[in-house]
Amino acid sequence: MAVYSDKVMDHFSNPRNVGEIDDASGVGQVGNPTCGDIMKMFIKVEDEIITEVKFKTFGCGAAIATSSMATELIKGKTIEEALKLTNRAVAEALDGLPKVKLHCSVLAEEAVRSAIDDYYQKTTGKGLDGYNPKKFDGCHH
């Protein structure tokens, strides 16, 4: 009996879209090293469509797998569609996560929102409506 589903292990062992985008339209970072989880997400947006997405993550197996899955789920989607990505959808796409690891999927959802927030900051001068990155101070395991 393994701790993680085969899908989680697949995305952990062969993570998709690892890396950085030099000329990213938006870059978001959530988590902090004290808690043991940091996700950094880079998106490239053209005509409101996320044409490219990359991530870098410091964290446990679930943190890496949820980052990878989240990038797969928003790639090629419109910003509007990407904003509808929920932590639950990320966890479900991975065939579930252990209860203690659900915060990793929350982090993945927030990394996407943080990158989109940054994109809006850069393009419109104001961030994503109702986005409050402060709520990610402190550890939420």
């Binding site: 690892v18 950085e20 970072q29 940091i38 950094k40 870098k56 410091f58």
Partner: peptide, 8 residues
């Protein structure tokens, strides 16, 4: 480490 934003 290559995947870690801290290593960068």
């Amino acid at each position: 480490r290559e995947m870690s934003p801290l290593w960068d």
